[in-house]
Amino acid sequence: MKFSELNAEQWAELQPYLDTAVLPVTGLTGAEMPHEATRKLERLRDVLLTIEQPFKGRIVTYPAIQYGARSPELAEQLREVCGNLRTAGFTYIILASAVPLPPAEACGADLSVGPDEDGESPEPGAVSESVRKLWLGRA
């Protein structure tokens, strides 16, 4: 479910069931040519689909953090946003990324889903398994 699909009344009613926030991270630097930025956005869309489709009804996808290279500053920004999402009531935070990120724990998240260091996209089955393990406390 997208954040924009929930009004205040719906949130009050559904919050007990929507315990997981997905925070997309595009990883743009501003140095990309338009076609390169498009490719990153398409990769992020594909990663998000591996989470959103099978788990609709338990997750809320927030707006993407568009800019930020893999750096201590990005990890710090993600820690702050993840902390705010927890304060808002989410038990689990999943980062969905178009680029490799620092480890989820360094960013204040419970799970990070995205390409590996070689740029290989995650397999949908592996993503589903990781999310289920997270919810079962076996992550």
Rank of each mutant, 00 (worst) to 15 (best):
A104W: 01
P103Y: 00
G68D: 03
L74N: 08
G57I: 07
V127P: 08
C107Q: 05
K133H: 13
R39G: 01
D19N: 13
V127G: 02
M1A: 14
T91Y: 01
E9C: 02
Q10S: 13
D118F: 09
R39T: 13
I51T: 09
L134Q: 10
P102E: 15
P122Q: 03
E80F: 10
A12Y: 03
H35A: 15
I65P: 01
E32V: 07
E73N: 09
L6T: 04
A104F: 00
D46S: 10
L6K: 08
P100Q: 03
P34N: 00
E117D: 13
P54N: 03
Q53F: 12
Q15L: 03
A88W: 02
A104S: 02
T29H: 04
E120D: 08
E5Y: 03
C107P: 00
A31R: 15
L18I: 05
N7F: 09
T20I: 02
D110P: 04
C82L: 08
L6Q: 06
A69G: 13
T29Q: 10
G114D: 00
V99D: 01
P122A: 07
P72D: 07
Y62C: 15
C107T: 02
L111N: 04
T87G: 10
P34S: 01
D46F: 00
Q66N: 14
T91Q: 15
G57C: 07
S112D: 03
Q77I: 10
S4R: 14
L44P: 05
K56L: 13
E13A: 15
P16Y: 12
V81F: 05
R70A: 12
I51A: 08
F90A: 11
G125D: 05
R79T: 09
S128V: 14
L136P: 04
V113A: 09
G137Y: 01
S130V: 11
P16Q: 06
T61A: 07
E42H: 12
A98L: 09
D116E: 00
A37G: 11
L78T: 08
P63I: 00
F90C: 12
L74Q: 10
Q66H: 11
G119W: 07
F90D: 12
A12C: 01
V47Y: 00
A21P: 05
S71N: 07
A8W: 01
K2F: 06
Y62E: 14
E13Q: 15
R45H: 12
G108W: 00
E13Y: 14
G68C: 09
D116G: 08
R86C: 04
T20P: 09
V99I: 12
A69D: 11
S97K: 06
V131D: 02
A96F: 11
L28E: 11
A8E: 11
T26C: 14
G68L: 08
F55K: 05
Q77W: 08
D46H: 06
E73G: 12
G27L: 09
S71F: 08
A126K: 15
R70F: 02
G119F: 07
E73Y: 11
R138I: 12
Y17P: 00
R138T: 15
P54Q: 02
R138F: 05
